[in-house]
Design a binder for these strands. Structure first.
Lengths: 122, 122
DNA sequence: TCTCGATATGTCCAAACGGACATATCGAGG
DNA sequence: CCTCGATATGTCCGTTTGGACATATCGAGA
């Protein structure tokens, strides 16, 4: 029903702090892209999404946490753009850590399920 | 953007075997409800969803795996209903195992993030 | 043969989602 | 003061999603 994920890693992990604040693979990738590129638009574009969508995700993250994970400033030519706050960097790195721990914890079972499924076609 | 999860456990784990076959907390709960109640309708109702939605999820699961996780039979009065196949039971138990392993692997980080967020309100 | 309880399936509609496009705004530098 | 590049925000619209409701079908037992 809901459309699946682009096969990034193994599982798809979403961490829900409360009803308003959560982070999943898409949001994490976006944060990482912003950290790398210094721009919401560039980060979104790299993920194939519109500026507006990327911007709305940033809004949702900042609003959900009650404090900004991303700060922005207008103006081009090296002055404007977006950056992660300390909070944003910490959230991102913790998410990546959880993602890595999760993949390590489930890889055997995932392999077993994949094998199980492919054996069905025999 | 996408609506969060009813706070069941800690993280929200979705396992994607391929583009068509995946299982997350909702589908797992539904499978478990079917195993317990012997009925798609009853299982769905217990989760607050319509029969049609529950049924369509079962279809998606069966089609995605290429083999039924749930078999059904018509007729009421103890004869009709739905059951998990061996495959369905195995997929469910493996998912639960992965879920438990994941929660154990991330609990410290989740607690840290929750503390971080609540400290913001000071 | 009638009823009961369950699966199976269709139609209709409202809300949500997100893409496409258009502006507005701002900051710095030429 | 004009342009550039980026954020900020609005409108419009097609698609998807899922709820509500209506049937149809089936199996067993009274």
């Amino acid at each position: 029903m809901k459309k699946p994920v682009p096969p990034s890693g193994l599982g798809h992990l979403r961490i829900t702090l409360d009803a308003e604040a959560y982070i999943g693979p898409g949001r994490a990738d976006l944060l990482e892209g912003i950290e790398r590129s210094g721009s919401i638009g560039a980060a979104g574009k790299a993920m194939g999404m519109s500026y507006k969508r990327a911007w709305s995700l940033v809004q949702a993250l900042n609003a959900g946490f009650g404090a900004p994970l991303v700060v922005t400033s207008r103006g081009g030519s090296g002055q404007g753009g977006a950056q992660l706050t300390d909070l944003g960097r910490e959230v991102l790195s913790r998410y990546r850590a959880m993602q890595a721990a999760t993949e390590a914890a489930i890889e055997d079972d995932v392999a077993a399920l994949r094998r199980l499924k492919s054996d069905l076609s025999n």
